[in-house]
Amino acid sequence: MQPLKPSPLSRPLIASLLASLCAILWGSAYPSIKLGYELFLVGPDDTAAKVAFAGLRFTFAGLLVLLFRFFQQGEKQRFRTLEGKSWVQILMLGLLQTAIYSIFFYIGVSYTTGAKSSILSSSSVFFSALLAHWVYANDHINKRKGLGILLGFLSVVMVNFEPNLGITFSLKGEGFVVIAAFLTSAGALYSKRVSRRIDSVLLTSMQLFLGGLILLALALTQGASFPTSTLAGYVLLLYMASLSAITFSIWTMLLQHNKVSSITVFYFLIPVAGTFLSALFLGESIFRLQYLLALPLVVAGIVLVAYSSSKTPV
């Protein structure tokens, strides 16, 4: 029997380009959400409408991945053989990592800038490193990872400082974004555990779809109207849904064919892309002292944590 040819995805150049693409697309989500609020006429204090917008996006995202996987060979059978316990775990994940997370995140983003949101959201990398220290016996914090975590959380502090030594931090804005980052980390650990029994792509598509439906139902019961917009708004919504579906699928395949740390290190591009794309599409000023100090810190922190986590159990 001839040995299997290595996947093109294992080639460093291809893997780097695709990982960079995923990170940049994820970074584009921050200005996209704020533009979506404008196009769907979501008021600044209309919480129910924000939740409905998030619900519609994730319902579509989960549906796109689910339809793609469902018609692949063997996927129908895999879907039918999910046990009752698996459905409970999927529902719990959809509730935690999609529904509850989105309530905090979509509200938080609306009360702060896209640039600051992208930097604050990166704290999920450092929360994950801290949680892994307590969950996995062979993923303790070493000196390099500890320095990365310190730099990461220092960036969270620095991004909220003003040149006059004042602090621009509100619980409903920056605070909610940080809470959402923590929920992402906690949900990822639970997802990792559940994915040992359930195909990871099927798991994510279902938790996105069910989580999105929960958000929509919650918003509609709270008086929100079903999200409607112009053609430009629906195109943006389709882009955001496709963004989630495409990036997750590519990222999952990259992790299957490459060393984990060589892929996760590209997380550093997310706050960079989020910051510069917010300046490009939202007209935000990024040449502010707190951004110039916080962005290098969060990038350095992510790189240190990623390379220190090369032996993290999978």
Rank of each mutant, 00 (worst) to 15 (best):
S16N: 15
L93K: 00
T228Q: 15
V156Q: 04
F226G: 13
S10L: 02
A115C: 12
V42D: 04
R144I: 14
L150D: 02
I246G: 06
L35G: 03
G84T: 10
F287T: 02
L13N: 03
A245H: 10
F268G: 09
R80H: 12
A137L: 09
L41H: 15
T98A: 09
I14Y: 02
R78T: 10
K5L: 13
S185L: 00
L91G: 12
L147D: 04
L280I: 13
G223C: 15
G175S: 10
G27S: 09
W134T: 01
I14Q: 06
F209S: 08
G187E: 01
P31H: 06
P296R: 02
L295W: 01
S16D: 15
G27F: 03
R57P: 03
R197E: 14
S170W: 02
S262L: 05
L293Y: 03
F169V: 06
Y190G: 02
L96C: 12
S20V: 08
F176G: 04
L13Y: 08
G173K: 01
S249P: 05
L67W: 08
F169T: 01
L237G: 14
M206W: 08
V156I: 13
K76N: 08
Q222D: 13
L293N: 03
I167A: 04
L18C: 11
V157L: 13
L297Q: 05
H140C: 12
R288E: 14
N142F: 07
S242T: 15
F126C: 03
